[in-house]
């Protein structure tokens, strides 16, 4: 899933404060699960905007949470609102914001979130990054633990010399060294030979950015 965090209110307010009719648009998929842009968060942000703009008599805040902001059909359904709003504050991920902007061509669309990573919820209220969408998956060689993403330096041939005591990361002692995790897992699976193999420099153009995939058949 895509994980995002809400921007500080002051930054959001600075973007949006001179508009009167604002649609706060959430998303019912990834950002709902990561507590950033679901129904509840849309309601909270709408309330904050109303309080901040209480002196503006013309301020009208409306709310909507389509199932997925990144699907044209689901956003198209909201198109008839365009004449009644001055700006959209999207609480979707970056893909959602841009889908909305592509459909609502006559009004500005602003992001209320910072999209941070592809990850998963590891515990209640804790999301961790798992995938960099690099287009060249290495998980077969690394015991299902991604070094491109979970090693702070994205190294492919083993840990750097910065591993801290007990197998923690140089960059953040709270985080595990991905290569120590990989070593232990491969050891347990009797697959350490995979880590012994030399990994060639990565093809950083496996996905030509900006990425496009065109299906040839379905």
């Amino acid at each position: 899933m895509i994980v995002a965090e809400r921007k500080p209110f002051e930054e959001i307010w600075n973007m949006i404060s001179h508009y009167n009719r604002i649609l706060v648009l959430g998303c019912g998929t990834c950002v709902t699960i990561c507590w950033a842009g679901g129904e509840k968060e849309v309601g909270i942000l709408a309330s904050q905007l109303k309080i901040a703009g209480e002196k503006n008599n013309e301020l009208i805040i409306t709310e909507s949470v389509p199932e997925r902001q990144c699907e044209i059909e689901m956003i198209q359904e909201l198109k008839d609102k365009e004449g009644n709003i001055d700006a959209i504050l999207s609480m979707g991920c970056g893909a959602g914001v841009q889908t909305v902007a592509g459909i609502f061509t006559d009004i500005p669309v602003f992001p209320a979130l910072n999209t941070t990573f592809l990850g998963m919820p590891e515990a209640e209220g804790l999301w961790v990054e798992m995938c960099s969408a690099c287009g060249d998956c290495y998980l077969a060689y690394t015991g299902g633990i991604c070094p491109v993403t979970r090693c702070g330096k994205g190294l492919l041939n083993g840990p750097c010399g910065g591993t801290r005591k007990g197998g923690k990361c140089e960059i953040d002692p709270e985080k595990d060294c991905a290569w120590v995790l990989i070593y232990r897992r491969l050891e347990k699976l009797s697959m350490l030979d995979l880590m012994e193999q030399y990994r060639e420099p990565k093809n950083y153009r496996a996905v030509k950015r900006p990425g496009i995939i065109r299906a040839t058949a379905r």
Partner: peptide, 26 residues
């Protein structure tokens, strides 16, 4: 390999690490 960007004095820099030390030797 090189130290992490985070320990230095330009902490907003893009960490490259396109190669690792084994690949650099190669």
């Amino acid at each position: 390999t090189g130290d992490a960007i985070d320990v230095g004095d330009h902490t907003q820099a893009k960490p490259v690490f396109e190669l690792d030390s084994v690949q650099l030797i190669n």
